[in-house]
Amino acid sequence: MTQILNLTINGTSQDIPIDDPRATLLDVLRERIGLTGTKKGCDRGQCGACTVLIDGRRINSCLALALSYDGAEITTVEGLAQGELLHPVQAAFIEADGFQCGYCTPGQIMSAVALIAEGEAGLDPERVREGMSGNLCRCAAYAGITEAVLKATRAMNREDAA
């Protein structure tokens, strides 16, 4: 039986017919509505490649049963840039070379956006590294990732102050 799932994804409310109740949020995003920016690395909540924000909180979308998120607001990597204007975290990842192959990058970036919003790490590199450790990077771009998060934090602090 097809059920209708309502999600507000990157600011747009959508009714999504769900043909299979077993579908994870990740597979709904990727296979049902074509938002393939969010990646599947392990499908077990172990790598963080599928990180999206649900109501502002970062989660592993591979562990989220889609139908249990009816009515939720979801932000994916496709929802960060405003047209051609990159989000400060996206810009900082390019500048600091916070990625190589790019596969874990959408998850890293979503995680970083939430980490900065959580305000727990601030400009302490040790806490940034800890807060980003749920997102594996096999290319091991960790030095660049940490630098990118710190850069973006500073940039966003400046924006807030302005």
Binding site: R30, E31, G34, L35, T36, G37, T38, K39, K40, T76, V77, E78, L80, A81, L86, Q90, A91, F93, I94, E95, D97, F99, G102, Y103, T105, P106, I109
Partner: peptide
């Protein structure tokens, strides 16, 4: 130089094999 594919990779627009539908 920064990566020429950087923008594609940070915006989720870089297409990996399993992204094809």
């Amino acid at each position: 130089m920064t990566r020429r594919d950087g923008v594609l990779k940070v915006t989720g627009r870089a297409t990996y094999a399993a992204d094809n539908r």
